[in-house]
Write a protein that binds this DNA or RNA. Structure first.
Lengths: 166, 166
DNA sequence: ACATTCCCAAGCAAAATAGTCAAGATTATC
DNA sequence: GATAATCTTGACTATTTTGCTTGGGAATGT
């Protein structure tokens, strides 16, 4: 299974896009600066996101990217799938030829796990993330990098850990 | 997050150990042959498993490894944690300095996800895996590599997909 | 003694990851 | 229509991780 920086960056960038919805197209340069991601690397990621229609692009000056659909219709699992080829944990990637062309001992375990993770991530939309207070506070900080905000040093971790809660 | 062959091998080997419980210590050479894993690689994995007391070892002829506790007391999550250093999905590994010493936009998302995966895998014991019919059938095949078993080509996938079900 | 097993550390090739670089296409604006 | 901003694409590179090998040891039953 793959859940690496690539997927993290993609979700982060998509969330940035959501948070600045309504300001017209957002340039990758803006996202790169706000989120601390290499511009060229973002380009590669957005190339894949575009192919899956998760973002729409406008070229030329004043151009940039915007969400391909509403933030409540784009789910984290989709974004990760778009950039990480597969979220599958099995070695055989779903086939059952893991060992000498036969099913390996733990094939089903990884298969089930993949389904669990995928199900979990596909319940969380970008809108859900935006609604989190912690996200809003970080976004505020990123939009106003000059002003110090010393009073916000509380624990921002939600800690609810509820599966269905997203 | 890391869920690679290393973790898969470890769980597979531990399951092999469980399945042959009662036959005295199991040598790594046996496991290597049955599961198609490099012996030297297994040695490395078992070194870590041993440090976490997940297995016990006996040296010398007739020696080998056995489970450190009952198969119903060893959980898949533990095994993976023992060999993959961390199952954490956050970049900062739990600290909140992901971006310029501050919390990144999606920190909590990955933190929550880690908890979900960990919670899921820590509910599944080696005994649970052994109770699965599909596992038994594969184990049978591995124990009797000579005899052909053509009648077992049914779909072995459990498909229940229930989170609490393990 | 000796073969069998666990134990350990170093090293290494291939793959994947994270990122760079260079060139081009499109389009708003002056 | 020149220019600059922006997306678009492909190739290339450095670094890290993975999966594995090598080569030694240490313990212990026979």
């Amino acid at each position: 299974m793959k859940l690496t920086t690539k997927g993290r960056y993609a979700v982060t960038a998509m969330l940035d896009l959501s948070l600045h919805y309504g300001e017209g197209p957002i340039t990758l340069a803006d996202i790169a600066q706000r989120q601390g991601i290499s511009l060229s690397y973002l380009e590669q990621l957005f190339s894949r996101l575009r192919k899956k229609s998760l973002v729409a692009s406008v070229r030329g000056p004043g151009g940039g990217y915007s969400l391909g659909r509403g933030a409540d219709e784009i789910f984290v699992g989709e974004v990760i799938s778009a950039v990480d080829e597969n979220i599958d944990t099995t070695r055989c990637s779903g086939a059952h030829n893991c060992q000498n062309n036969e099913r390996c001992l733990t094939h089903d375990l990884w298969s089930d796990l993949s389904n669990q993770i995928y199900g979990y991530l596909n319940k969380i939309s970008l809108q859900d993330l935006m609604d989190r207070q912690a996200v809003r506070e970080v976004a505020d900080r990123q939009d106003h990098p000059d002003t110090e905000q010393p009073g916000l040093d509380v624990s921002l971790v939600d800690g609810s850990g509820d599966m269905a809660g997203a």
